[in-house]
Design a protein around this nucleic acid. Structure first.
Lengths: 315, 315
DNA sequence: GTCAACTGTATGTCTAGGACAATCGTGGCT
DNA sequence: AGCCACGATTGTCCTAGACATACAGTTGAC
């Protein structure tokens, strides 16, 4: 595959505001790195304002990505280009990586379609998988491992961000089709679904939504990033039994736990909180008042338990 | 304690970073206004850091809108709340605001359903509207004015954030259903759709997607927030003819223009950029190399023009 | 061993006013 | 009218220091 990383188009030196835009690193951060770590070292225009050469911007972009993966600035900010690229390639060969052999061909096909930006093909492929597996198995056996695969492929540099975006978009489309085809549920518990501020990933939320909808649960989704204050208000007004929250690994666990505790304090005891997502797979201590669900398969038993409990309590 | 419909929300005071996010005014600007015009006058926390009371944030949001409309800061930054509201009312008794009389009942019904968190009802309502109007008219005559209405209702405090989220979620669902029902297009131009970093609103993108798909256009959507560098790479690799970008009013016009210019520089001349959305309705000078589209209705003629141009060029 | 509390370092954000480039609007000139 | 020059307006960038918060390593108790 001759996907060369493209000859640099000879871009002019960039002022600090442009670098902020391109890398997502704030001006303050850029200036403070310069002071502390001696990198970047921008040129100056005739008025003494910073001008970043294209190669430094490239390095900064790589650094920014590595930080998003959890590396610490001290270890990467000063590092030379080759080391950055090496580290970017490392990737974590976790156990989630090997999907079950049975689905491997499906996964491979997906990656192939992504590489060629073949939207129509991808759409047909996912749709077919959905029809063949049914929503339940599509979510747990296909979508979930595929999400991990695509994420890994990106961090290994095998696919571009734009291709990962394309995948997310299409998968979202497919999940919504699946959810939309289910007649609105009426069974208890009444679940209000959303994510907390800072958590932008929709796929986790949609997968959970699908798992709940399949069981006939009555659920209302608010989409992503609802502030705790508003969740509490909405849950009370709507008379929800459960608030369901989805977490990817993009949030810090500490931050997430703090927000959960905050939300817990704002909700009456009678409303349960179910927190799901990959973030909790390495949870040390689980604070009281919140149910943690690290795998989609656990949703079904959790529902069954809730229903048993309720029918026992109020016969 | 009965569930009363909410006492005045008592929002907490906001730190400067939150105000920057909510109003779109940079921290530098906020500090300089304070120095120059004596407004805003934030409280200070125990460490001397700024804390903006909710009412000042409200005023700032109004001011920001007026600036976007072309008023000069000196005339509005110090002004009292009543004057701001008066001036805000002046401007657009815009045509977008009053939906055509024919759809008014539909709009009212939507707001009513939102207020009661009736997801099933909302879903049925939107689905019905979609079926009755057809995707084309659903988008331009229902979804677009409704988005404005819901936004206004929120900023007037008539509905909660959570209700606005619920609306967005359901509308998104419906639009995706509509788009998904269309057989993948094959006609030129080949359009790559996305938004730039900082622009999180999906609805605008989906509406544009719908308008393009209806015309049989071949389009690929990358979802929201793709960095300019990645857009450029993707567009070249995929061989797109047009890059379509959607902008709500959440980005500052200046920022958006800078990013557009940046993207323009990275793309070959042969790839067009179409920038759409409410942000451009009050654009002063339009930079070269980008097509601006402030209304959805303009998409169809734009397509027609492109096709005519192409078939004339390569007969 | 396991876990909680402590501690030092790492890190990003905030503060202050000054400087200045870019834009806007006005008045005078052709 | 059209055009240019000028002063006022306005946002962004600069420096450098302070400090809250997050992380990582260590100690101490059970």
């Amino acid at each position: 595959m001759s996907r060369t990383i493209v000859a640099p188009p000879e871009l002019p030196d960039a002022p600090i505001s442009a670098v902020e835009r391109e890398t997502g690193l704030s001006k303050d951060t850029l200036r403070v790195w310069e002071r502390r770590y001696g990198f970047p070292v921008p040129l100056r225009d005739r008025h003494g304002e910073r001008l970043y050469p294209a190669d430094q911007v490239l390095r900064l972009r790589l650094i920014s990505r590595l930080l998003g993966r959890g590396l610490r600035p001290r270890q990467v900010v000063g590092a030379p280009l080759e080391e950055l690229i090496a580290r970017a390639g490392e990737g974590d060969a976790g156990p989630a990586l090997q999907a079950r052999a049975a689905e491997a061909p499906l996964l491979d096909a997906t990656l192939r379609l992504l590489r060629s930006y073949d939207e129509a093909g991808l759409r047909a492929h996912l749709s077919l998988a959905l029809q063949r597996l049914g929503l339940q198995r599509f979510v747990t056996e296909f979508a979930a491992p595929m999400n991990v695969q695509v994420g890994e492929a990106w961090s290994r540099g095998e696919i571009a961000i734009s291709q990962e975006h394309l995948y997310t978009e299409q998968m979202q489309h497919q999940l919504r089709q699946g959810i939309g085809a289910i007649y609105p549920g009426t069974r208890a518990p009444s679940v209000m679904l959303t994510t907390l501020p800072g958590e932008e990933h929709q796929l986790g939320l949609l997968m959970a939504h699908a798992c709940l909808a399949i069981e006939g649960t009555r659920c209302v989704s608010l989409g992503v990033q609802t502030p705790a204050w508003d969740i509490a208000q909405a849950a009370r007004q709507h008379g929800a039994d459960v608030v369901g929250l989805s977490f990817s690994e993009s949030l810090r666990q500490k931050t997430a736990l703090d927000m959960l505790q905050d939300l817990r304090a704002r909700l009456p005891e009678s409303i349960e909180i179910w927190a799901g997502g990959a973030l909790w797979s390495r949870l040390r201590r689980r604070p009281p008042g919140v149910r943690f669900v690290s795998r989609l398969e656990q949703i079904s038993p959790l529902l069954a338990e809730y229903r048993a409990r309720e029918s026992a309590a109020a016969p």
